[in-house]
Design a protein around this nucleic acid. Structure first.
Lengths: 194, 194
DNA sequence: GTCTATAATTGGATAGAC
DNA sequence: GTCTATCCAATTATAGAC
């Protein structure tokens, strides 16, 4: 765990994490980074290979954080449907959007293999982990047998990512909350017979 | 229906529709527009109030097209669940993304009331229209009574929008297709008893 | 109406002092 | 390591010829 004041390098990374979440990659200028971080041009180009290098580090940290959030919920005990419901209903900065998912609309991120990697891996990890939980539920008899875990898992992750889209369009959390509750409703149809 | 060669104004709008779908609003430069449209600077600034004015017209057309696509499917006859399935499985340019939904990640679009309006209205229309269909299904007995149409409708629209996010992250249509089939699976749980 | 030329501003990176 | 000053290219907009 990091403690004490941040040095310039650390300050730059944390500022970049915020800005990329707020404005995306192309929407974040070096000027804005340096201004908010409170450091000069020199620091950025000393510690990183320009904007792209800093973005790569910031994205990796955002990806690690998002994965950690998921692990905390999915690794908890109890019925798998409960864990998935907790994931869906977890409090979020809805109008800010997902710091990972939003990067997919940024052509300069998707077009750069290094920048895209943490995005791809994180979302794929969520899909895979939820699919595992669903398969586990099928084996235990908690869930019905007649569905493909990987498909339902993708739908669950997509509802969250798409919920952000609806919320930003409306500039309101309401459609996000609706989508989440709709997904929770739909999931109850997966329950097994016993 | 428009026929014959496009004049410069028309050419600019159609080019802008394409480019905004491919690269977003901030990612689309006047230079790129003029180059692909094959017209000079003067034409753009004569017909429109700069890039923003052109974008407003392009977005309105994209919104109208997306709404028209929805109407064609939702207004068809037959069981409502069939119509929603047709909507979900409709062929799409998955890796390009939704020309309307993707704009929500563009701060300059969301921050401009004029540009945001067609985005908000179109997605809200889809939510509302699907909610109507679901309510209709509940009344007819095709669907069970114990769910909130507006919530499930939001989840359905979110799955499609989120599916694009997963597909772009993976640079593959597979997660999109999975999410769609997962949603179709989940929807079967809504069927009524009779 | 449409063009080319040009201007103002910002994005992104470099140079060199301390 | 960090700063300020500077530079080049691209974005966005304007001017003025035709």
């Amino acid at each position: 765990m990091y403690s004490g004041d941040m040095d310039a390098r650390e300050q730059l990374i944390e500022t970049m994490r915020e800005l990329m979440g707020e404005r995306g990659y192309v929407g974040t200028s070096p000027r804005a980074i340096l201004s908010r971080a409170g450091v000069g041009q020199g620091s950025m180009y000393h510690h990183f290979d320009g904007k792209a290098g800093l973005a790569a580090e910031a994205l990796r940290r955002n990806a690690d954080a998002m994965r950690g959030d998921g692990e905390a919920v999915f690794d908890a005990g109890g019925p798998v449907l409960d864990r998935i419901r907790v994931y869906l209903r977890r409090p979020r900065e809805v109008l800010q959007g997902c710091r990972i998912g939003r990067m997919t609309e940024d052509p300069d991120v998707i077009g750069d293999a290094v920048l895209r990697k943490p995005i791809e891996e994180t979302l794929a990890w969520y899909e895979r982990r939820i699919a595992e939980l669903l398969a586990e539920g099928q084996e235990s008899g908690e869930l019905a047998a007649g569905f493909v875990p990987g498909q339902v898992a993708a739908a669950i992750v997509a509802v969250v990512q798409g919920g952000y889209v609806l919320a930003k369009a409306a500039q309101s959390v309401e459609p996000f909350d609706n989508a989440i509750e709709g997904a929770v409703t739909l999931l109850t149809g997966l329950r097994g017979e016993r």
